[in-house]
Simulated scan of single mutants.
Amino acid sequence: MKLVKLIKLNNLQYNANRDPAFYRRPVSEEFRLQAMLNGSGEAKAMFTVEGETLCESTINLPGTFDCKFSYDTAGTRIGVLTIDGANEQFRENVRIDVLDHAPIG
Protein backbone atom coordinates (compact mmCIF):
# COMPACT_ATOMS: atom_id res chain seq x y z
CA MET A 1 0.00 0.00 0.00
CA LYS A 2 1.38 3.39 -0.99
CA LEU A 3 1.73 6.05 1.70
CA VAL A 4 0.42 8.88 -0.54
CA LYS A 5 -2.91 8.19 -2.27
CA LEU A 6 -3.46 11.58 -3.86
CA ILE A 7 -2.04 15.10 -3.99
CA LYS A 8 -4.36 18.03 -4.67
CA LEU A 9 -3.49 21.65 -5.39
CA ASN A 10 -6.36 24.15 -5.25
CA ASN A 11 -8.84 21.24 -5.02
CA LEU A 12 -7.63 19.63 -8.28
CA GLN A 13 -5.63 16.41 -8.47
CA TYR A 14 -2.00 17.50 -8.92
CA ASN A 15 -0.31 16.28 -12.09
CA ALA A 16 3.06 17.77 -13.06
CA ASN A 17 2.21 17.13 -16.74
CA ARG A 18 -1.04 19.12 -16.64
CA ASP A 19 -1.06 22.68 -17.97
CA PRO A 20 0.11 24.81 -15.00
CA ALA A 21 -2.64 27.35 -15.78
CA PHE A 22 -5.08 25.06 -13.92
CA TYR A 23 -3.29 25.70 -10.63
CA ARG A 24 -2.37 29.40 -10.93
CA ARG A 25 -3.53 32.01 -8.44
CA PRO A 26 -3.19 35.81 -8.42
CA VAL A 27 -1.07 37.64 -5.84
CA SER A 28 -2.50 37.38 -2.28
CA GLU A 29 -5.02 34.67 -3.24
CA GLU A 30 -4.74 31.50 -1.18
CA PHE A 31 -3.25 28.26 -2.49
CA ARG A 32 -4.30 24.97 -0.90
CA LEU A 33 -2.10 21.88 -1.03
CA GLN A 34 -3.46 18.58 0.27
CA ALA A 35 -2.00 15.09 0.48
CA MET A 36 -4.31 12.16 1.21
CA LEU A 37 -2.35 9.53 3.15
CA ASN A 38 -2.72 5.76 3.71
CA GLY A 39 -1.25 3.48 6.32
CA SER A 40 -1.23 3.27 10.09
CA GLY A 41 0.64 5.10 12.80
CA GLU A 42 1.90 8.62 12.22
CA ALA A 43 3.54 10.51 9.36
CA LYS A 44 5.52 13.74 9.36
CA ALA A 45 4.64 16.02 6.46
CA MET A 46 6.34 19.23 5.39
CA PHE A 47 5.97 21.64 2.48
CA THR A 48 8.88 23.98 1.75
CA VAL A 49 9.33 26.58 -0.98
CA GLU A 50 12.75 28.07 -1.70
CA GLY A 51 14.07 26.88 1.67
CA GLU A 52 11.16 28.33 3.67
CA THR A 53 8.89 25.87 5.51
CA LEU A 54 5.29 26.90 4.81
CA CYS A 55 3.57 24.01 6.61
CA GLU A 56 4.69 21.18 8.84
CA SER A 57 2.62 18.72 10.82
CA THR A 58 2.30 15.20 12.17
CA ILE A 59 -0.70 13.32 10.78
CA ASN A 60 -2.40 10.25 12.24
CA LEU A 61 -2.72 7.70 9.44
CA PRO A 62 -4.84 7.37 7.45
CA GLY A 63 -5.34 11.12 7.20
CA THR A 64 -4.86 14.35 5.24
CA PHE A 65 -2.04 16.89 5.22
CA ASP A 66 -3.54 20.34 4.54
CA CYS A 67 -1.43 23.41 3.77
CA LYS A 68 -2.72 26.90 2.91
CA PHE A 69 -0.45 29.75 1.82
CA SER A 70 -0.29 32.82 -0.43
CA TYR A 71 2.34 35.14 -1.92
CA ASP A 72 2.68 38.93 -2.14
CA THR A 73 4.70 38.83 -5.37
CA ALA A 74 4.18 37.23 -8.77
CA GLY A 75 6.44 34.51 -10.12
CA THR A 76 7.02 30.78 -10.40
CA ARG A 77 8.33 28.84 -7.44
CA ILE A 78 9.10 25.17 -6.91
CA GLY A 79 7.90 23.69 -3.64
CA VAL A 80 8.91 20.35 -2.16
CA LEU A 81 6.36 18.14 -0.41
CA THR A 82 8.10 15.66 1.91
CA ILE A 83 6.26 12.95 3.83
CA ASP A 84 7.85 10.34 6.10
CA GLY A 85 5.76 7.60 7.64
CA ALA A 86 4.64 3.97 7.48
CA ASN A 87 8.28 2.98 6.72
CA GLU A 88 8.17 5.02 3.53
CA GLN A 89 9.62 8.33 2.37
CA PHE A 90 7.80 10.41 -0.25
CA ARG A 91 9.07 13.52 -2.02
CA GLU A 92 7.35 15.50 -4.77
CA ASN A 93 8.19 18.80 -6.45
CA VAL A 94 5.15 21.06 -6.81
CA ARG A 95 5.12 24.06 -9.15
CA ILE A 96 3.54 27.21 -7.67
CA ASP A 97 2.63 29.92 -10.20
CA VAL A 98 1.56 33.33 -8.88
CA LEU A 99 0.09 35.85 -11.34
CA ASP A 100 0.36 39.67 -11.13
CA HIS A 101 -3.45 39.93 -11.30
CA ALA A 102 -6.49 37.75 -11.89
CA PRO A 103 -7.02 36.69 -15.51
CA ILE A 104 -9.56 38.77 -17.44
CA GLY A 105 -12.31 37.05 -19.40
Score class of each variant (00 low, 15 high):
Glu88Val: 03
Thr82Cys: 01
Gly79Ser: 06
Cys67Phe: 08
Pro62Ile: 10
Asn87Pro: 07
Gln89Tyr: 12
Ala102Leu: 14
Phe22Thr: 06
Thr48Pro: 03
Asn11Ser: 13
Lys5Asn: 13
Ala43Lys: 06
Ile83Met: 02
Ser28Glu: 10
Ser57Trp: 07
Leu99Ile: 12
Pro103Ala: 10
Gly51Lys: 05
Leu9Arg: 05
Asp19Phe: 05
His101Ile: 14
Met36Glu: 14
Val94Met: 10
Thr53Cys: 01
Thr58Ser: 03
Ala86Asn: 14
Ala102Gln: 10
Val80Ile: 15
Thr82Arg: 10
Thr48Asp: 11
Thr82Asn: 11
Pro103Val: 14
Leu81Asp: 04
Glu42Gln: 06
Asn15Cys: 09
Tyr71Asp: 04
Gln13Met: 09
Lys68Trp: 01
Met46Cys: 11
Asn15Val: 01
Asn60Glu: 13
Pro62Phe: 08
Arg77Phe: 13
Val98Leu: 07
Pro26Leu: 00
Ser40Lys: 13
Ala86Gln: 07
Phe22Met: 04
Arg18Asn: 09
Asp72His: 12
Gly41Met: 07
Thr48Cys: 06
Phe31Gln: 01
Gln13Val: 15
Ala74His: 12
Ser28Tyr: 05
Phe69Arg: 02
Ala43His: 00
Gly75Met: 04
Tyr71His: 13
Gly79Cys: 09
Asp72Val: 11
Phe65Lys: 04
Gly75Leu: 10
Thr73Phe: 15
Val49Thr: 13
Thr48Trp: 07
Gly75His: 09
Gln89Val: 13
Gly79Ile: 10
Arg95Asn: 07
Tyr71Gln: 01
Leu81Ala: 06
Val49Ser: 09
Ala102Ile: 15
Gln34Lys: 07
Leu3Lys: 01
Glu42Arg: 12
